[in-house]
Design a binder for these strands. Structure first.
Length: 563
RNA sequence: UGAGGGUUAGUGUAGUGGUAACACGACGGGUUCUGGCCCCGUUAUCCAAGGUUCGAGUCCUUGACCCUCAGCCA
């Protein structure tokens, strides 16, 4: 009995597809595509688009293509092509045999350009980039025609051929669509279709020195592949008119472009440029730094792919700009991990405790549940002995009213072990607490008192003699303000405490053999993942994926505000 | 003040003329060998103003505010 499928919430794109299915607009086909430019790493914003496109295809029995939009050789490379595919697979998506590259269509695209020239709908402009910009006009004033706008088809054909054979230098000329320099939509003021780039392309190498522009290549690639619904983000809205114009001019198969609002997440940035800056200026350790909103960063942090998919489903799809709460992502991660993660005990800031009435050399083994949410995960044995560690913040010498944990004279439960009572506090000359002395009740083995008495709290612990030393990295938001992207200098608003490295942590022996990538819950603390880069068998390193919901910290904050 | 979009609880989405739904968050409570999970409750009259209608978040009008576009980037 698998978890019931969450019913996918309706959205406007679904409505369009269902209407098209009803009217038979595309003969019942649904073909979408995810078209990344291989010039960077995928991030959570891309995941929204990926889940949308693959999800829609899956739901309506269609297919989703993976197409690398590689029309700009200077910025793209094979490394990104591979990284993107790895991220997609990890996310759980399969494009089967539908892996395409816009560069595969360069010949056909060139022919389409020739066709446009022959129809008198495209011309070679020999103005400089600067002149072209000047003559484009402004948002409110129309542009002016290029002096080369009325070259004959024969002349254009000859010139375009020369562009292709490398007779001109970069920037010397460009192929433009002949539309309308006075068009109210600036995109339509004779947009560039092809430019000269004398750079080797990662796939076609030195074969071409002219490359199609996005507007020309994208619609035609969609057309060639028989895409039905070409889903992209809102900033391409103005380009839709051109998308349609090119396809109509060429009388080509015509998919429909549908735009949706891109994802914005608070306390982080999702713009490629800004992410590059973080990496380039070493604000983070790399693209897969666990604090990065990249797919590789989330993966290394320990975020399960299912959580990302659920998140993308929950945020919905619409056309209005919005910023999703980071708390929702955290919720999705916890939800997934709560069901799947192995529970384990680990002490981050150890405080030594000695049980005075416990036999010196005795060690006993106690049984612990591996996952209370899933009995199938079984139980394990944990060693217990006279000296152990508890979390420093689980003890207070002078506890406030709502503090239920250990305090002088108070009895608490050691999870799966015994009820212990604090009898003494050992301090150094400066008043720092060095160690605690307790007594235990032998009759409470396993954690329950035969006389039925209750304790207010249960603490996690690790036997000192059996503990394994570990490094634990506590991650927090990368930025300290909600909308770092709106800042004049987003680097100035980085959270200085986005990572805290603890090197003297104690974890239970079970973790000795934990493999890189292993996710578990440190009881009462949060979910952690064995780092895939820096962890080694003798010296485990854990990344905190996300904390547990922490009611106590809220009570503490409230207490501070009240007083 | 050119063109194209947008505006429903703190946040994100649903509602397609019949009297506002779901999720997260927040707050309160229950349960508990994780102050976790789980359970229960509270949390909006739909940007504004007019109009059409027996009835409007949904239709019309006017206005306000927000976003995108002047790369030989995508």
């Amino acid at each position: 009995m698998e978890a019931k499928e969450r019913t996918v919430p309706p959205n406007f794109i679904r409505h369009v597809i269902e209407e098209d299915l009803r009217t038979g607009k595309y003969d019942g086909r649904v073909v979408t595509r995810f078209p990344p430019e291989p010039n960077g790493y995928l991030h959570i914003g891309h995941a929204k688009s990926i889940c949308l496109n693959f999800g829609l295809a899956g739901e309506y029995g269609g297919t989703c293509h993976l197409r690398f939009d590689d029309t700009n050789p200077g910025k793209e490379n094979i490394e990104f092509v591979n990284a993107i595919q790895a991220d997609l697979r990890w996310l759980g998506f399969d494009w089967d045999r539908h892996l395409y590259f816009t560069s595969d269509y360069f010949d056909r695209l060139f022919d389409y350009a020739i066709a446009l020239i022959k129809m008198g709908k495209a011309y070679v402009d020999s103005q400089s980039p600067d002149e072209i910009r000047q003559n484009r006009g402004t948002l409110k004033e129309p542009g002016t025609d290029s002096p080369y706008r009325n070259r004959t088809a024969a002349e254009n054909l000859d010139l375009f051929e020369k562009m292709k054979t490398g007779d001109f230098g970069e920037g010397a000329c460009v192929l433009r669509a002949k539309i309308d320099m006075a068009a109210p939509n600036i995109v339509m003021r004779d947009p560039a279709l092809y430019r000269i780039r004398k750079q080797p392309h990662h796939r076609t190498e030195g074969l071409w020195c002219i490359y199609p522009m996005y507007d020309f290549a994208h619609c035609l690639s969609d057309s060639i592949e028989g895409i039905t619904h070409s889903i992209c983000t809102l900033e391409f809205e103005n380009n839709r008119e051109l998308y349609d114009w090119i396809l109509d001019a060429l009388n080509a198969y015509h998919p429909q472009q549908i735009e949706f609002a891109r994802l914005n997440l608070n306390y982080t940035v999702l713009s490629k440029r800004k992410l590059i800056t973080l990496v380039a200026k070493n604000h983070v350790s790399g693209w897969d730094d666990p604090r990065m909103p990249t797919i590789s960063g989330l993966r290394r942090r320990g975020c399960p792919p299912e959580a990302i998919r659920n998140f993308c489903e929950r945020i919905g799809v619409a056309r209005r700009d919005s910023t999703v709460d980071f708390a929702l992502l955290e919720y999705c991660i916890r939800e997934e991990l709560n069901k799947k993660a192995h529970r384990v005990m680990a002490v981050l800031n150890p405080l030594r405790v000695v049980i005075e009435n416990y036999p010196e050399d005795q060690t006993e083994t106690l049984s612990a549940v591996n996952n209370p949410e899933d009995a199938g995960m079984g139980t394990r044995e944990i060693p217990f002995s006279k000296v152990f560690y508890i979390e420093r913040e689980d003890f207070m010498e002078d506890p406030p009213k709502k503090f239920y944990r250990l305090a002088p004279g108070r009895e608490v439960r050691l999870r799966y072990a015994y009820l212990v009572t604090c009898t003494d506090v050992i301090k150094d000359g400066n008043g720092n607490i060095l160690e605690l002395r307790c007594t235990y009740d032998p009759a409470t083995r396993g954690g329950d008192a035969p006389d039925g008495r209750k304790v207010k709290s249960t603490l996690h612990w690790v036997s000192a003699r059996h503990a394994i030393d570990a490094e634990v990295r506590l991650y927090d938001a990368l930025f300290s303000v909600e909308n770092p992207g709106a800042e004049e200098d987003f680097e100035s608003v980085l959270n200085p405490k986005s990572v805290e490295v603890l090197t003297r942590c104690k974890v239970e022996p079970f973790l000795k053999t934990a493999a890189p990538g292993f996710r578990c819950q440190f009881e009462r603390l949060g979910y952690f993942c064995v780092d895939t880069r820096d962890s080694s068998p003798g010296k485990p390193v854990f990344n905190r994926i996300v904390t547990l919901r922490d009611t106590w910290s809220k009570i503490q904050k409230k207490g501070k505000n009240d007083s």
